[in-house]
Design a protein around this nucleic acid. Structure first.
Lengths: 121, 121
DNA sequence: TGCATTACTTACCAATTGGAAACTAGTTTC
DNA sequence: GAAACTAGTTTCCAATTGGTAAGTAATGCA
């Protein structure tokens, strides 16, 4: 019996599936993309800055997500010896390679809103 | 007192945050990107094709995720009157606008693997 | 008649996610 | 000494997510 040609079972496609899974794991959760997006625009930012800038996030979540991002080397954490100590977070060069993804996601979201109540109505 | 210049609280940044939230909601869950990615490569595919091609997905999940994608007009569902009826799923033109996102995500994942044990070792 | 195939749906359950609130701990200010 | 600010951590809880397995309904084949 002839085998049906599989589409995604080729090595190429398995690599693609793994790649997508990897990326989505690194960006998992409700907040990582927002934290990264905020840090990409804001440069060096302190914990309390991020907590205030990112609407709706709780300290626990911010803390946990920053740890994840740090473990994956997407952001750096630097303790600054100020009066009350502050901690600065910054996107690494490696983390900046996420920018195209975040941009595409943001672009699509704008496009989506436009389509919903935009031109076609 | 001078107000500290907020970075993400400008209208521009709020739009961006909303945009990202919207996109991630449309692509939410473990499987949507994979289903979309598979359909983008495979063209018209039947339910059972997808079930076999997408490694690890259960019928329940595939069904639910396809319904979500259909609701968001990213894929079409067409019942074909074959001997045992079959259902064809296909990415819409609109759905194809997701391709840049999925490509960027896949690219990054490949880059990530290379970095992990690749060139630098 | 009985099994297979297609495309699901339903029921149940376990793990993960994420939110609120309180607490820690060091330093500064009143 | 009390309050406030820094950067968290801890606890407790509720909702969401997703997996397994079985059931359904229509049709075809031996």
């Amino acid at each position: 019996m002839l085998k049906r040609k599989t589409v995604t079972k080729s090595l190429e496609c398995k690599v693609r599936i793994t790649a997508i899974t990897d990326t989505m794991q690194v960006l998992s959760g409700k907040w990582k993309i927002h934290i990264l997006g905020t840090l990409l625009q804001g440069g060096k930012m302190r914990f309390m800055d991020l907590l205030r800038e990112i609407d709706g996030i709780a300290a626990k979540m911010l803390s946990k997500e920053l740890q994840d991002l740090e473990m994956n080397q997407l952001v750096t954490r630097t303790v600054v010896d100020t009066k009350p100590i502050t901690v600065e977070y910054e996107v690494t060069e490696y983390g900046k390679t996420m920018e195209p993804i975040i941009d595409e996601i943001a672009n699509w979201g704008v496009f989506y809103r436009n389509r919903l109540h935009g031109k076609t109505d």
